[in-house]
Design a binder for these strands. Structure first.
Length: 373
RNA sequence: GCGGUAUUGGUGAAGUGGUUAACACGCUGGAUUGUGGCUCCAGUAUGCAAGGGUUCGAUUCCCUUAUACCGCC
């Protein structure tokens, strides 16, 4: 058991190519991490993830805390053993659920009061508790417990929030027991330059193993505000540590993040939209349920190397999705995750060749041009 | 052959002599960014079996026809 190590190997403008050494092997960045909230990437097996060249998988503290409980997972030998994923993992702290499940009045200096989404039971999560749970879950990278305020929140609210999040970060760090797990700090600050700068510099002073940029891509925040939030954060982060943009997974947003110096991304989007019948393609997103695919016997993308594209037609997948068969959801999930992982593979190649911007512009142009029919 | 009852969109159906014919499903679009929620949003009958009549006005009342079902010879 050793803690992950990051090495920055090449820069191309703001874009960074690097390597992360883990006990499971060495992985390259920029990378995309699929989300497996409840210790499974919905509908997919670990073997399938491996075949897509997936490296890190996420799981969620809040959900696993409720069910099956961190003690059970510890008994099982940790997350990886429990779910049979032989690769690096990351757990989110439950901070996002502060945004999605709790109300502002439920957030206090001590922690956050939740109503369980399962049975309405009263729950209380603190920075210490979150780290303690994550220590037991045993992922390679764990997150500080933060408040993720909506981008639309008032300036003063966000200011108070990031100060509290800093105090929470420190409390979490103080109780972090398992030194083989990397602990990341999280930069907040909404769309405000001074708040992002403050949050970033103060978080870095606490000396974490890596840094996340949070509070982005939620609450109908505009793309511009989101890119600005990254712009205002990354300059203050040390170059020799990983930078993780939380929750971002639109292909174009990943490219914009890489340009601004982000190394790792995660997002539920590829799996969520898959379950609702959407697929990423080089020419933009498509809705497989559309009538025009009813008799389309070609794959989602001719040149895609994923299992779904190599073996199945749009007409078939459309049928499966419209009758709500899980195999259809699986095929689209496989395609979408492979799409984003392939995107990061190509991004890495372009950075190594010092052609990142060229690659980015070409990709975006094709993606936005859309389908001609 | 004689009576009775029914006939509303793709489906199941509400409904009324008077502005845009309820609701549900389906269908057609859209949304979804550190995953509570096979979820959310929008559109979807210029017409109420067909034809004629009464009426200022009929899907709603009357007549004829068609079709379906139920009785009776």
């Amino acid at each position: 058991m050793t803690k992950i190590k990051y090495k920055l190997l090449k820069e191309d403008g703001g874009a960074r190519y690097g390597e992360v050494e883990t006990k499971y092997g060495t992985y390259e960045t920029p990378m995309f991490m699929p989300v497996g909230t409840r210790a499974t990437v919905k509908t997919l097996s670990p073997e399938e993830l491996k075949k897509m060249n997936c490296s890190v998988v996420l799981a969620n503290t809040y959900h696993l805390w409720l069910r099956p409980g961190e003690d059970l997972i510890k008994k099982a030998g940790g997350l990886q053993k429990f779910m049979n994923y032989n690769g690096p993992m990351l757990t989110d702290s439950g901070g996002y659920q502060v945004f999605s499940l709790a109300k502002p009045k439920d957030i206090s200096e001590e922690g956050v009061k939740f109503k369980s989404h399962i049975d309405g039971a009263n729950l209380f999560l603190t920075p210490e508790k979150s780290i303690e749970i994550q220590n037991k879950l045993g992922a390679d990278i764990i997150m500080s417990f933060d408040e993720c305020p909506p981008a639309s929140a008032e300036y003063d609210y966000i200011k108070n929030s990031i100060e509290r999040t800093l105090r929470w970060a420190k409390r979490g760090k103080n109780v972090h027991k398992n030194k083989d797990q990397a602990l990341f700090g999280i930069v907040q600050g909404g769309p405000y330059e001074d708040l992002r700068k403050f949050s970033a510099t103060e978080t870095v002073k606490l000396d974490f193993d890596g840094y996340s940029i949070g509070g982005v891509a939620n609450d109908g925040e505009s793309k511009e505000d989101m890119y600005k939030a990254i712009d205002y954060s990354t300059p203050y982060l040390p170059k020799d540590k990983l930078r993780y943009l939380m929750g971002v997974g639109e292909p174009i947003d990943i490219l914009e993040g890489v340009e601004r110096g982000v190394d790792i991304f995660d997002c539920v989007l590829p799996t969520r939209i898959a379950r609702h019948g959407n697929a990423f393609t080089r020419k933009g997103r498509i809705n497989i349920k559309n009538l025009k695919y009813k008799e389309d016997f070609s794959p989602i993308e001719e040149n895609c190397d994923c299992y779904a594209c190599k073996n199945y037609t749009k007409a078939y997948i459309r049928h499966l999705i419209s009758v709500n068969e899980t195999f259809g959801q699986r095929l689209l999930s496989i395609h979408n995750i492979r799409f984003l992982i392939k995107l990061t593979e190509e991004i890495r190649e372009s950075i190594k060749n010092e052609k990142f911007l060229e690659y980015k512009n070409k990709f975006i142009k094709e993606y936005n041009n859309g389908d001609d029919d």
